[in-house]
Amino acid sequence: MSTERRKSRRGRRGGGPAGADLERARGLHVLVVDDFDDNREMYAEYLAHVGMRVSQARDGHDAVRKAIDLSPDLIVMDLSLPDLDGWDATRLLRADPRTARTPIVAVTGHAIGTHAATARAVGCDEVLTKPLLPEDLLDHIVSIVARRR
């Protein structure tokens, strides 16, 4: 993220995107996947607060199952997950025609090495690094949805 963008966020009261983009994002169904409960619940609570419908999963298998069963508009995917990790879950989702085009935003604590490049290679649309405030996550979701329309 650029320094300018960070500065603009610090200066904003309440955070989060404003206007038409946010209005369009309200009502989206987002699947939040993270095995770290405090972070998953924090994101889920915030996205629900701004008007999105939110489902949650805490491992890769649960994420794939829910993505196929619930057809969310977008998936927020942690990469380090028990059993089936976020990279493999994304591969499976991209290989399934029902979820092949669903936007996937990876949110990860992995900031070193090739983790982000691998996440993009397997099909994640964006890779964001923790710690990530919920309103910053919302910014990215709104921006991805706006680009897709």
Binding site: N39, M42, A111, G113, P131, L132
Partner: peptide, 28 residues
């Protein structure tokens, strides 16, 4: 060493994210 540092950074970012998010909410 690089791998261990990378993994430790990952382990620290999760709780740090929760702390920062909660503090932000408390300021609201």
């Amino acid at each position: 060493r690089h791998e261990i540092v990378s993994l430790l950074v990952h382990e620290l970012r999760n709780p740090l994210g929760a702390v920062l998010g909660s503090v932000r909410s408390l300021r609201g």
